[in-house]
Measured scan of single mutants.
Amino acid sequence: DHDVVPEDKFQETLHLKEKEGCPQAFHALLSWLLTQDSTAILDFWRVLFKDYNLERYGRLQPILDSFPKDVDLSQPRKGRKPPAVPKALVPPPRLPTKRKASEEARAAAPAALTPRGTASPGSQLKAKPPKKPESSAEQQRLPLGNGIQTMSASVQRAVAMSSGDVPGARGAVEGILIQQVFESGGSKKCIQVGGEFYTPSKFEDSGSGKNKARSSSGPKPLVRAKGAQGAAPGGGEARLGQQGSVPAPLALPSDPQLHQKNEDECAVCRDGGELICCDGCPRAFHLACLSPPLREIPSGTWRCSSCLQATVQEVQPRAEEPRPQEPPVETPLPPGLRSAGEEVRGPPGEPLAGMDTTLVYKHLPAPPSAAPLPGLDSSALHPLLCVGPEGQQNLAPGARCGVCGDGTDVLRCTHCAAAFHWRCHFPAGTSRPGTGLRCRSCSGDVTPAPVEGVLAPSPARLAPGPAKDDTASHEPALHRDDLESLLSEHTFDGILQWAIQSMARPAAPFPS
Rank of each mutant, 00 (worst) to 15 (best):
R423K: 02
V268P: 06
L287N: 09
G341R: 14
L381Y: 01
G465K: 05
I297W: 10
A267G: 07
G453V: 15
V451D: 02
R323P: 08
G280E: 06
P282R: 09
F426S: 05
G434V: 11
W422I: 03
R440Q: 09
A467Y: 09
L364Y: 07
L275R: 09
P397W: 14
S299L: 12
H474L: 10
P368R: 12
C289D: 15
T357D: 08
E475W: 08
S369G: 14
R440W: 09
L333F: 10
E489W: 00
V312Q: 05
P322D: 12
R438E: 07
L376V: 08
L385K: 04
P464C: 13
C307G: 14
M503S: 03
E263K: 06
G434M: 08
V454P: 10
G402E: 04
F426L: 04
G407R: 07
E330R: 13
C416I: 01
Q501F: 03
S473Q: 09
D377G: 09
R323V: 09
R438T: 07
G272H: 03
P389T: 05
L483T: 03
G241R: 10
P256Q: 09
Q257E: 06
L486I: 04
E342L: 15
C277N: 06
E296G: 09
E475A: 08
C307L: 12
G280I: 09
G402V: 08
V454M: 05
P397T: 07
T447I: 05
L252P: 12
P448C: 06
L359T: 05
S488N: 09
Q392P: 13
G273I: 04
T435D: 12
T430P: 12
V446R: 09
P509A: 13
P466D: 07
R480E: 00
G398C: 08
L478S: 06
E452P: 13
V329K: 11
H474E: 05
P457T: 12
R323G: 11
Q325A: 09
A504H: 07
S378A: 10
G405R: 11
R318T: 05
H363D: 02
Q242A: 08
G436N: 10
S488L: 09
G349T: 08
P466S: 11
L411T: 04
C269V: 06
P374V: 13
L258W: 06
H425V: 06
R270S: 10
G336C: 13
A310M: 15
T301L: 11
L287I: 06
L385S: 08
T331R: 10
Y361G: 08
V246A: 15
L486A: 06
P335H: 12
Q260W: 14
S306H: 13
V329I: 14
A472D: 06
Q313R: 10
A396F: 14
G453S: 12
H425D: 14
A428N: 14
E330K: 11
L483D: 07
S443I: 13
Y361H: 04
Q257V: 10
Q316L: 11
L294Q: 14
W302Y: 07
A396Y: 08
C424T: 01
A251T: 08
D493Y: 10
G434P: 11
P509R: 03
C413L: 02
N394F: 14
F492H: 01
G407K: 05
E263R: 06
G494V: 02
G244F: 13
P476E: 12
R283E: 13
E484I: 02
W498V: 01
D279G: 09
A353T: 10
H474V: 12
